[in-house]
Design a protein around this nucleic acid. Structure first.
Lengths: 149, 149
DNA sequence: TCCAATTCCGAGTAAGTTCCTAGGAATTGA
DNA sequence: TCAATTCCTAGGAACTTACTCGGAATTGGA
């Protein structure tokens, strides 16, 4: 029941871009350095996020990545779904999938549905703007935080 | 973000035993057949559940497995934790683990904590007794269900 | 007392997933 | 033109998953 580094790095990278919203395109190299993530690996992740329409890119020198929407319009759930697939603890409660074949199994289905719903509720009610605010709170408490941004 | 077959089969097997609570030890073979799970594989899972104190075993002929507690005392969260490890979407919000090293990362930490809490809430507030009741409701609706139990 | 039914235990394994690395083509601002 | 950047494809080591295999130990009943 873990989110893989894909989801983790993806959220961290998106938050990094969100924190610098309005400051022009941010090169991948900078994000990778600040977040201590392999540049090549992050490149693959952000490429997926671009194809999903969550970020836009500017090629060439002075290029980089920008949020495709305002930070308050990007839900964490969107990022996770893009990088990790549907939010569902079990295939049988994945929207794309149908019901299960085994009747007995369905006694547990309500449980998996409730679990899925509670996960989606948290992830879809948190936006990058929420996390930016959280980052600002941390920044206020700890001045050394500045050096990371 | 999927529960593996370990957790799935574990819950199914435990529910199977719970449905037959008070009817003496149930052999693994029967459970595996009813739930359509590889007997050898299920053996490994139930061995883990036994070591965790969730089921007790009776060896020899006419032996099998029994719930170690009443169905209303066995939380689904206990089963999942035993077979899948701590319920935590990320290492940094695992109880055993401490905080993360990266300050910036912590801006996302509240999110992972909230996600973990919402998952635990669902899984710890559902017991085998709840699922038994669910199974009975399904049975009432569909007579063919009888053949599966 | 013996047998069949059962749990218990450890080893092995094929396929899939994760988390990268490597190398180079295409694009563009200065 | 050049350096900085995105874009793309391929590969691969390590780990995990979902099993299989074979046999030892235990025990109720004939």
């Amino acid at each position: 029941m873990r989110i893989s580094t894909r989801g983790e790095y993806g959220v961290r990278a998106m938050l990094d871009i969100a924190i610098h919203y309005g400051q022009g395109p941010i090169p991948l190299k900078i994000i990778a350095e600040r977040q201590e993530i392999s540049e090549h690996y992050l490149e693959q992740l952000i490429s997926t996020l671009r194809k999903a329409g969550l970020v836009t890119s500017v090629r060439g020198a002075q290029g980089g990545y920008l949020l495709a929407k305002r930070p308050d319009e990007v839900r964490i759930g969107d990022i996770i779904r893009t990088l990790e697939g549907p939010i569902a603890p079990m295939d049988c409660v994945d929207d794309n999938d149908g019901c299960c074949s085994h009747t007995e199994k369905c006694a547990t289905r309500v449980l998996w549905q409730r679990l899925r719903d509670s996960m989606e509720e948290v992830l879809d009610n948190t936006t990058l703007a929420c996390l930016c605010q959280e980052a600002m709170k941390l920044q206020a408490k700890d001045d050394s935080f500045m050096y990371h941004i």
